[in-house]
């Protein structure tokens, strides 16, 4: 029983197998035309020669990938050594996005759970309460967040007045500020999928576990978490992946002293550099990285289901 619930009866079900082509067709069509085609164009661009100040010349070239992985010195005439610049930028972005995802999970999971356990009639109100702030433009929210965190801002004033600290904590222009900003940008994307999962959770399972003298933490870990895993994974994907490419929070809250993936790529298309093939190559590397992570996830889930079935 528990195993069946944990795997969620998901992909095993083939109720609508005969209609699946028709069900998927709209998604395939829209995404195929308006997302996949542009992405494939970018893939092609990453193997073309760059045109000075933006644009491409239709000649095959690996220069973009060479630039990513090969360091050839300030003047580009030294032999190839490993280029750490872009790997570091990627690593930094992954780290920041990961920290923001963790922060969202730690605060978002209890919130989602709390909402899902309210009486049914007030649950929508709670859901809206979480999403109302997102009617305000991201830029304005981020600027306001920066205002809150300033050395002379309300947060520091409050902490000093309570006597918790003596001098202001310096938060703006630190990594923590970036994580906080990313967390603030994407929180509902963690809360809502988890809420949708927990709302469906059968609390009789927890009850049964408690009857068998399982502690609360054991119940949480062994029964509840596996059952709502799809929601947690969906939430993590929806926070982590957009965080990777985001640049508003890093720029405004982090001081933009170091490139993140998003600003690095933006600079290639909109900045002085105007190096479209390199921007395309960096996007493709990011894309394949994320794709691999997601595929591993999907595979593992499929395996777990097979094992449970």
């Amino acid at each position: 029983m528990a195993a069946g619930a944990a795997s969620g009866g998901s992909a095993k079900s083939d109720t609508y197998a005969d209609a699946r082509t028709w069900l998927l067709l709209p998604a395939w069509a829209v995404l195929g035309i308006f997302i996949l085609t542009p992405v494939l164009m970018m893939l092609v661009y990453s193997f073309l020669t760059k045109e000075f100040r933006g644009g491409v010349i239709w000649e095959l070239s690996f220069a973009a990938y060479d630039q990513f992985f090969c360091s050839r010195g300030l003047f580009g005439d030294e032999p190839c050594t490993v280029e750490w610049t872009y790997i570091n930028i990627f690593w930094r972005s992954i780290w920041q996005a990961g920290a923001a995802t963790l922060l969202s999970l730690v605060i978002g999971f209890p919130t989602a759970y709390f909402i899902a356990t309210r009486p049914e009639s007030v649950r929508p109100v709670w859901v809206f309460l979480i999403t109302i702030p997102y009617w305000v433009n991201l830029l304005i929210r981020t600027v306001s967040m920066k205002f809150m965190l300033r050395d002379q801002g309300p947060l520091n004033d409050f902490l000093i007045s309570t006597g918790l600290i003596d001098s202001p904590i310096h938060i703006v222009n630190t990594n923590f500020a970036v994580q906080l900003g990313l967390f603030y940008s994407y929180l509902p994307f963690m809360v809502l999928p988890i809420y949708a999962s927990v709302e469906r959770y059968n609390f009789n399972l927890s009850e049964a576990a408690a009857d068998l003298y399982a502690s609360k933490m054991t119940t949480l870990r062994r029964i509840l978490l596996p059952a709502v895993k799809p929601g947690v994974i969906a939430g993590c994907i929806l926070v982590f992946v957009p965080s990777l490419g985001s640049f508003l929070a890093p720029d405004l809250l982090g001081g933009a002293k170091n490139f993140m993936i998003g600003s690095l790529i933006e600079e290639q298309f909109k900045g002085n550099a105007g190096n479209w093939p390199f921007g395309a190559a960096a996007s493709m590397i990011l894309l394949s990285m994320v794709l691999v992570i997601l595929m591993i996830f999907a595979r593992q889930q499929a395996k777990a289901e097979k094992g449970a079935g």
């Binding site: 300030l74 003047f75 570091n88 170091n258 490139f259 002085n272 190096n275």
Partner: peptide
């Protein structure tokens, strides 16, 4: 020109890496 600009682009990337 293109060649010179490439060096300045590298300097800028170095600054923000």
């Amino acid at each position: 020109n293109e060649e010179t600009q490439a060096v300045y682009d590298t300097i800028w990337t170095n600054l923000k890496k």
